[in-house]
Design a protein around this nucleic acid. Structure first.
Length: 623
RNA sequence: GCCUCUGUAGCUCAGCGGUAGAAUGCUUAUAGCAUGCCGAAAGCGUUUGCCUCGUAAGCAAAAAGUCGGGGGUUCAAAUCCCUCCAGAGGCUCCA
């Protein structure tokens, strides 16, 4: 709170015009007070953390000044122009009223000029040395600074380029985007900082319609609820990514989700990472919720005995959850959350050569992870962010990356290094609203080895700090993968295709529709059991509805294979299969059906359907 | 955190001071197609009854509402005002 106190011979003020929606009522339009201390004051954001303390301090200050100038008459005069960081009108009004009351209790005569009006005033200042005083009042809890990194990012200057597959850099506006429409959309998004979106993102409706995910009003924003089908898809993705990382050499650990804010290594890292944290009080200590797996893994590595023979050491965790207290307005559907599931694999490297070799391996890991999930290379765009210095010294390395992905990429170059890393790439998905979101990413970190005091024994038997740490999320947040998969169906529809999910992720892979739910049920149950034994998810539309209705329901659920079972099929030995995305139905034997499906989901994890097979036995979670 | 819009039955939405209702779905989407309404009162879903059906909605009836929560204005509030909550969009931010 800022105050300006003036010892006046007289003050006249007159409310002229309403300045805010809900101003205080005016008792008498024009008032004059003689021989008084006029306290111009502005309530600030910081005061909201602890209004009681602000009032207390204000009263103490005013009492002090009034004592010095020997007056009993006080005018409290709200004066917004003293501050550029005003509190809300509501708090200000309450605070004024409380201050008024408290001063009267101290025996002062208090007048208040009404809050929320443009006012005319005339003041005569006495002019003695104590007659004009300004004071600033701060309350505890208000002084929490934004992190250095948040501040730094505001100042950081970026240079934008497109790098083609030969490694040649071109200015953004000189590049011909003829065959790279998606890259153009991505580049504009990044460089123009144009964030306008016309509508609600496509996937929000779908995630509810397919009964995958929903908002949970009883939790904090950005903390979602998963229904059985959504949980299944998420679990499959989690398992797939984990399998990929373990195959690559990942050493899976599990670490706590909250950490002491006062821990020396953590406190410094917090300053370097411009995300906002959830905070938790426990006993005497204050904790923050992790925003990645870095803390747990680095602290683990700090305590471990590591030799050069163990490097590169790949520590891995699928964080459920990582927490980032994003600003309220930034949250949307599955794209940006406050609690999300992120695979995080670090590689501790002995030197730059090893770091770069390892980086290449992980680059392939990320690419194959996204492609095996079901994305094509056209579904995402690569961005590379690098300091000028690192780029100049390692052009070959950068060229290798762009050649590997084999399409032009967006490059952001910085003059100075503000973050803990010197280079990172991302694979970005661009949605129908032109919003880009990072999926896979990997960073070369040159600070945290030292900050966390991670050491290893070199070949020469000397202890050394681990100089390079790679930070990779091979798929990006799992929720975000789901977002991209759902959002992508918009483009499928645009092209005239039926929207669909990758077969290995489809909650129901085969739906059996008995023509007569009574007469054909035995056969269906037997068939379903056989299909299930082949590790294919199956269910049975056994409701008392027409065939047409049940087929329609299956189509609206995006079921990949629909098999209608009637007398013909029970007796004939062939199955009539309706395949999503194809016009005609096919007549298949059981083995042909199984083979067709197995060919498409080869090598991907499988889990049974966590719902009753009979549709008539399932609750409806969404409408 | 700030600004704008939104919140009506499980879902999708109309109504916008006076009886709780006319639109909804699909697609090749600046438009087209289908079904409905203008006639006792939304459509889908749910429940019950009828129908026992071969590839995108069979027929009928019933139940179902704190009109997001709280406060105010008014003879009267879903409708106007204030406030809180939630969602979307913008600003900002996005490791």
């Amino acid at each position: 709170m800022k105050i300006l106190a003036i010892h006046a011979d007289h003050l006249t003020f007159e409310a002229k015009k309403q300045a805010i929606k809900d101003p205080e009522p005016v008792e008498s339009p024009k008032e004059t007070v003689k021989e008084c201390l006029v306290v111009f004051m502005a309530v600030e954001k910081g005061d909201e953390a602890n209004p009681e303390s602000a009032v207390q301090q204000l009263v103490a200050q005013v009492k002090d000044i009034a004592g010095q100038v020997k007056t009993q008459s006080i005018v409290l005069y709200p004066y917004a122009h003293l501050s550029s960081n005003l509190g809300s009108p509501k708090t200000a009004k309450e605070l004024l009223a409380k201050a008024d009351e408290a001063l009267q209790e101290q025996g002062f005569q208090v007048k208040r000029s009404p809050f929320g009006w443009y006012k005319a005033f005339e003041i005569s200042c006495k002019g003695h040395p104590l007659s004009e005083l300004s004071r600033e009042i701060t309350v505890e809890g208000a002084a929490e600074q934004e992190s250095e990194a948040l501040e730094a990012e505001k100042k950081l200057k970026s240079y934008w380029y497109i790098m083609d597959v030969d490694g040649a850099l071109q200015e953004l506006d000189k590049f011909d985007f003829k065959d790279n429409d998606n890259l153009k959309r991505f580049s504009l998004y990044e460089s123009d900082k144009d964030r306008s979106a016309p509508k609600e993102p496509h996937h929000v409706k779908i995630m509810k319609q397919l009964e995958l995910v929903d908002y949970e009003p009883a939790s904090d924003s950005g903390n979602l609820r998963y229904y059985p089908k959504g949980r299944l898809m998420k679990k499959l993705l989690e398992e797939f990514v984990t399998d990929k990382v373990v195959e690559y050499g990942g050493v899976e650990v599990e670490t706590p989700i909250m950490y002491d804010m006062q821990h020396p290594a953590l406190a410094k890292y917090l300053q370097k990472f411009p995300a906002r944290q959830y905070r938790i009080d426990s006993d005497k200590r204050k904790f923050f919720l992790r925003f990645s797996a870095c803390f747990g893994q680095f602290l683990t590595a700090h305590d471990a005995t590591i030799s050069y023979k163990h490097l590169p050491l790949r520590l891995y965790e699928m964080t459920r959850y990582s927490f980032r207290h994003e600003q309220r307005g930034e949250l949307t559907g599955l794209r940006r959350l406050r609690a999300f599931t992120m695979p995080d694999v670090h590689a501790l490297c002995a030197d730059i050569k090893q770091a770069m070799e390892e980086y290449k391996v992980r680059f392939d890991l990320s690419l194959s992870t996204l492609e095996e999930i079901g994305f094509s290379r056209d579904d995402f765009e690569m961005a590379l962010r690098v300091t000028k210095e690192f780029y100049e010294k390692n052009k070959d390395f950068v060229e290798y990356l762009v050649k590997t992905i084999n399409k032009p990429i967006l490059v952001e170059m910085w003059d100075e290094r503000e973050f803990y890393f010197v280079l990172k790439y991302e694979f970005n998905f661009v949605d129908a609203n032109q919003k880009a979101s990072a999926l896979s990413t990997d960073q070369i970190d040159i600070e945290n080895g030292e900050r966390y005091d991670m050491r290893f024994m070199t070949e020469k038997g000397k202890e050394a700090i681990i100089p390079y740490v790679l930070h990779c999320s091979p798929s990006g947040a799992i929720e975000r993968v789901l977002y991209a998969l759902l959002e992508r169906t918009y483009f499928q529809e645009k092209r005239g295709e039926q929207p669909s999910l990758p077969l290995w992720l489809a909650p129901t892979q085969v739906r059996l529709v008995p023509v007569n739910p009574q007469r054909h049920m035995e056969f269906c149950k037997g068939l379903a059991e056989k299909i299930h034994q082949q590790n294919i998810r199956v269910d049975i539309a056994d409701e008392q509805e027409t065939i047409g209705k049940r087929i329609r329901d299956a189509e609206q659920e995006w079921i990949p294979y629909v098999v209608v079972i009637g007398d013909r099929d029970v007796e004939g030995g062939k199955l009539t299969v309706r395949i999503r995305g194809q016009q005609d139905q096919v007549q298949w034997s059981f083995d042909e059906l199984v083979k067709a499906i197995k060919d498409r989901i080869k090598g991907m994890p499988w889990k049974p359907l966590p719902l009753p097979w009979l549709l008539s036995r399932r609750p409806i979670f969404v409408g």
